[in-house]
Design a protein around this nucleic acid. Sequence first.
DNA 1: GAAACGTGGGAGAGCGCTCTCCCGAAACCT
DNA 2: AGGTTTCGGGAGAGCGCTCTCCCACGTTTC
Lengths: 339, 339
Amino acid sequence: MGNRGPTLEDVAREAGVSRATVSRVVNGVRNVAPDIQESVREAIARIGYTPNQAARSLVTRRTGTVALVLSATGRSFTARVFSDPFFGRVVDGVLPVLRRRAIQPVLLVAESEQARAQLVEYLRQGGADGALVVPLDENDPLPSMLVAAGLPTVLFGRPRDGERCGYVDLDNPAGARLAAEHLWATGRRRPATIAAPVTAPTAEERLDGFREAFAAHGVTSVPVVRGRFTVDSGRRAMARLLKDHPGIDAVFAANDLMAQGACQYLREQGVSVPGEVAVVGFDDSVAARKARPQLTTVRQPVERMAAAMATLLVEQLDGARSGTAAKVFEPVLVVREST
Amino acid sequence: MGNRGPTLEDVAREAGVSRATVSRVVNGVRNVAPDIQESVREAIARIGYTPNQAARSLVTRRTGTVALVLSATGRSFTARVFSDPFFGRVVDGVLPVLRRRAIQPVLLVAESEQARAQLVEYLRQGGADGALVVPLDENDPLPSMLVAAGLPTVLFGRPRDGERCGYVDLDNPAGARLAAEHLWATGRRRPATIAAPVTAPTAEERLDGFREAFAAHGVTSVPVVRGRFTVDSGRRAMARLLKDHPGIDAVFAANDLMAQGACQYLREQGVSVPGEVAVVGFDDSVAARKARPQLTTVRQPVERMAAAMATLLVEQLDGARSGTAAKVFEPVLVVREST
DNA sequence: GAAACGTGGGAGAGCGCTCTCCCGAAACCT
DNA sequence: AGGTTTCGGGAGAGCGCTCTCCCACGTTTC
């Protein structure tokens, strides 16, 4: 840059007041006589003054900025981010909250190990007052790194054990119950489950909620096979289920991709979906709508969750809330073709 | 924040040297004796020092940051951005260039009038050293605002008259020639054109290039109807063409959306595409692939253009280039079903 | 052997702003 | 009237860093 613009000092001289008074007018703090305010504003307009954010940050320790971090790895990360409307929904939820507070939202992408390191360094050095993080992989190291750096952080999704930060999350057991009741209501009596690795607490909640709901109807034995969140692992899990429990008439998967895999395998084996076996996914991701048959699935109210995430962070920055406040949302069942 | 971390001063005391020396080690400027460097680094690690970006910026007038601005208006702006792979490609092109220079890329979205104002204010105050702007609408006021604010700016696409800033662009006449030669080679002899409003210089170049190419083959009269870049305007233009010039066997549209509209109208009228009339679009947008028939179109090398955009800006920031340097890229013809 | 040079380090002046402290004047109490 | 609050403004000390001077100490040069 190097464009040495006018400073507070210049405005003060121009308006015939002190630097402090100009600062007060600019920031609207304390009372300043109306006529002096007037002349200060005129002086500002006349010489085209813009406050210097760096100088301001130096003393206030605030940037007026919040980072919205999209973190994941993989070659096609950006392609994924910019083709999945999910992120658009998150951004849509976050923006209005921040704009209203005159906080500048900045999007940061952490697409590689190096990028993550640069990003953490940037934020540690005061690049933003806080971070809203949307981790795309389980086990994303970024949240821990940010928390360790002492940055106020709010996650989309539950933090891993030991990460002391705020978050918004879905009421997973409730979502699973929704799925279970729907299957029960449509006459399914012999359900099975494709769960996730035990290390994924979120998915584990889904599993538990589902089993409890069916248990309440007297169905106590629900077979479980574990997958790994991918389409392929869903296919393999479905194969196991079909072999070990040929009588099942419904499958609840812990995410859409595995549900999609299950559908694929079932149809390949000549099992009709939803005729003989109904399938329910979780997340209402793009995959759910793109799959054939389109998946019945459990949807998160993404915009509202994102807005809450922003609100949580803002309140934390205001000191009105602890750094570990959380908010849990109720899911909605989206019934499509697979049930 | 308020986390009053260790400062240069603390490191200096800890290492038994002066503040200046620590600064030199941190920034790697001038020679410092190896053993002193060592002890300074140890001190830094021991007390967990992180430089304060605000203080640094205050004196250097640099932030080490470049903004990538996505600007447009309309209710579904973010939905559009986060479902069109085009932006992913832009980001993919930009990131490596900036990372290599240890410049932090920040994405900013200007989704409304208010957002644009906030954004310009943020950048004026020194939020970033420069801006890479991807305007989605013709007549986006943002570039002018940034240029007026004195911010080094590079555009994706040609600036409007009077905006003195750098840009990357496509060689539009060459793209139009590509389309023309393809049509000529496939036996089309009576082409027509769906152009854009005369106020869009880019589109005008496409029109001229196309007409010149056919003129070189002796086809001097090419009907022109103007549309407004939308699918609907493409339909209307096609209707006019069909009515006034029933003999045409090819249509070249200044963008994919209008080409798509043309295809729709033709098929509705029972005119086979590409059998009776071939259609060529421009941009290779998502629309081109989603349309039925899939559009033959002219593609921009987006990643390379984005990378060049970043390079141009970086060089400008280094003072190695003027603020109005530009780079023009060669297009590629993508042949699909509509020709 | 003195003058010139190069090298590595310290001192200290800001960068532009905020914010606490202080002070004078006006308004309010008994 | 004397004392006590407001109220509106100025003075000035930093915030943490960079960077230009300047100086001390070798090392070279003739």
